[in-house]
Design a protein around this nucleic acid. Structure first.
Lengths: 198, 198
DNA sequence: AGGATTATAGACCGACCGGTCTATAGACTG
DNA sequence: CAGTCTATAGACCGGTCGGTCTATAATCCT
């Protein structure tokens, strides 16, 4: 059938394989052959679905990661009325994920972001838009709690930065303390801000 | 002469080349030939100074980066009595560096950290120790300002996380707003903490 | 049914990867 | 000045890189 978008699952498996690779080792860290083996697909199929090759596949994976992140944030803030608690749950989820993978899988966005150069316009563009959307989401939630727009924007950037930075520290340390501590410090900050304007 | 340590500058050029590569493209993003060309050295000299090859060179570069970071933090906190101002200066320096390189060069530690796997024990070890030292440095400074040890530790983790995460966001966005905003939010937090205990 | 389009399959390519090896040059030591 | 050790130099290696190309299978449209 495939009425809406012709997406014959092989394409999805390729994207998933790239996403996992980005989590584990980054863009330059995986070869095409490894990717294709993970997806159970031959070479030709990659260039059929992604004429732009590895780079185009990476952009698709980045897009998927961003969508996933926005959805899970949505769910979290919907579930917990208190944004501080939602944030704590977010960071807690990151801890669990990191531990479950034995500190192998981090955030796919951060890794490829740092590997990218100004010439990689497609990837940097996708990442910039994605980060921007995530920040907007966070800022909007804070504003709805009565935090002034300007302050909310700053805190949103800080939250995203802290999230990525904490994951990074925890990953190389092989322990999740960094995430726990970052979460605690962040929550204290948010509560003073929400409290201040109430 | 070379009385203290036999370090015949070629070694240093190799380390510098690797450090720059880590800033720009990451460990897997550069080839040995490129590295050697940048250092103006032939192949053999690499394996003479670093029998462990590329990986060992990377560890040396990481170590150098950490030392440099600790030194510059030292200078900053020595120069500015108020830690909030010192922090602002730190973030400001990051902005300038990023802009000067046209968003090509970020933090070398973050990049290789995210590319590493749990198997890369040497690199992860060096990074974990380095981050730990930086956090200790920050926490110590806060404690000296009267912040309770437990809180100081948490904030130190947050500061380092925010630094890395802000640089990351700014780099892909091609603008330094993220660093500016992170800096502002962070300083507000620190000032309330220092104020609270005074 | 028949032709066009989409998807799968993998052989094949030149370039470059990280790494080893031998040869030579210099410096220090007796 | 011979002998040793350190440093520089680059040819060379097998393997893998990302990418192209042609062949075939499945699907869709009329």
């Amino acid at each position: 059938m495939n009425t809406a978008a012709s997406t014959p699952q092989t394409r999805d498996r390729l994207i998933a394989a790239m996403l996992d690779a980005l989590r584990c080792r980054g863009y330059h860290g995986v070869g095409l052959s490894e990717l294709l083996a993970a997806a159970g697909a031959p070479k030709g199929v990659l260039y059929h679905h992604f004429p732009g090759g590895k780079a185009e596949l990476a952009v698709a994976a980045v897009q998927l990661a961003i969508d996933g992140m926005l959805v899970s944030l949505d769910r979290l803030f919907e579930k917990h009325a208190d944004p501080a608690i939602a944030l704590a749950a977010w960071m807690d989820g990151a801890q669990k994920q990191l531990r479950a993978s034995e500190f192998e899988r981090g955030c796919p966005l951060a890794t490829i972001a740092l590997e990218s150069t100004p010439n990689d316009v497609a990837i940097r563009g996708a990442l910039a838009n994605g980060f921007s959307a995530i920040r907007a989401h966070l800022a909007g939630t804070l504003e709805r709690q009565g935090v002034a727009a300007a302050i909310a924007g700053q805190i949103a950037v800080l939250i995203l930065a802290a999230y990525e930075g904490a994951l990074l520290q925890a990953r190389v340390a092989g322990r999740t303390d960094a995430i726990r501590d970052t979460s605690a410090a962040l929550i204290a900050l948010i509560n003073t801000q929400i409290g201040a304007t109430k």
